[in-house]
Design a protein around this nucleic acid. Structure first.
Lengths: 167, 167
DNA sequence: TATTGTTATACTCTATAACTATA
DNA sequence: TATAGTTATAGAGTATAACAATA
């Protein structure tokens, strides 16, 4: 259990890390904002899925997800096919064009990071990745409190696909 | 030097960490957005300073800084006194009200983080803070490339007050 | 009646450019 | 002429609420 000083510092670090995110976003071409990249990357990593699941993975409201997805679909990077099991839903699938697009965008991120982090070891990067993943899990869990083990619910909640286990 | 896989993962972690930032921001009262908190926290940590330096510390454009500062000044949390050495400038100082306000806001962050990170050790939090700080430094440095030691410039650039050494 | 997804609206954060005042 | 700061404008990201279609 850390002290007040550490928590204040963490809040400030998280606030300041936005500059890094903005710098990375500046590598992107004008028709592909960072929200669209996130959509493509998650579909590539986790495979085809419905809107609701994608919204969970993005950790944003479904209305926001809908806009990002429309942006990608308009450009042919994603296809939205009707879900045969529930006609309210649509299945999102990365197209070939989307896969190619993602590869190109990913290259831009990788080149930028490789330049910035040239003096970071493999382990340094892995460690930071792990810690960020853990931070997200800790944060999510505190908002979806774990069920009381002494009083388990009848049904498990939706599986937590929070991209928290990236490998 | 890490591999492509690690860099892709880092880009995605940074994108996803935004959810944590948003969660933290939701702890704030309506008249105090996170931009204002950042201003108050930096003035508290580094003492009175001018707009330009604050913009550097925030790592945003001065126009953005100006808006945040105006927000705070309108509420009496900051005073803007003329700089006797350069009448184009104004010195920003945290007021007593601003200090009190910051303490209350800081409490909200600390309470939220203490709840989420209850199972993190002191060292875990310190380590994450250090790595985030290092990430920011690496990122900044790659945009303000270090001077060639074999060919030093006549004049040193502005000191890099990037809050990179938080302690 | 509840849920999936879309759309309309509003708010925050940011950057660029035009402008004022001073150096 | 250049610099410190302000303001106007525009763009991206997000959330809430109202809505449509389906369960």
């Amino acid at each position: 259990m850390a002290g007040r000083r550490q928590y204040e510092e963490l809040a400030q670090q998280l606030s300041a890390i936005g500059a890094v995110k903005r710098g990375l976003a500046r590598m992107l071409p004008p028709d592909c904002p960072s929200g669209a990249v996130a959509v493509l990357a998650l579909l590539d990593r986790h495979g085809a899925m419905r809107m609701g699941r994608l919204a969970e993975l993005l950790a944003v409201d479904m209305s926001v997800t809908s806009r990002h997805v429309t942006h990608c679909a308009d450009r042919g990077w994603i296809s939205r096919s009707p879900d045969p099991d529930d006609r309210r839903s649509r299945i999102l699938t990365l197209t070939v064009e989307g896969t190619e697009r993602l590869a190109e965008l990913s290259d831009r991120y990788v080149r930028a990071l490789a330049r910035c982090l040239a003096d970071w070891s493999d382990d340094d990067v892995d460690q930071l990745n792990s810690q960020l993943a853990r931070l997200r899990v800790s944060f999510d869990d505190s908002h979806h409190p774990a069920p009381d083990p002494a009083n388990p619910p009848d049904r498990l909640p939706e599986p937590q696909h929070t991209a928290a286990a990236p490998q």
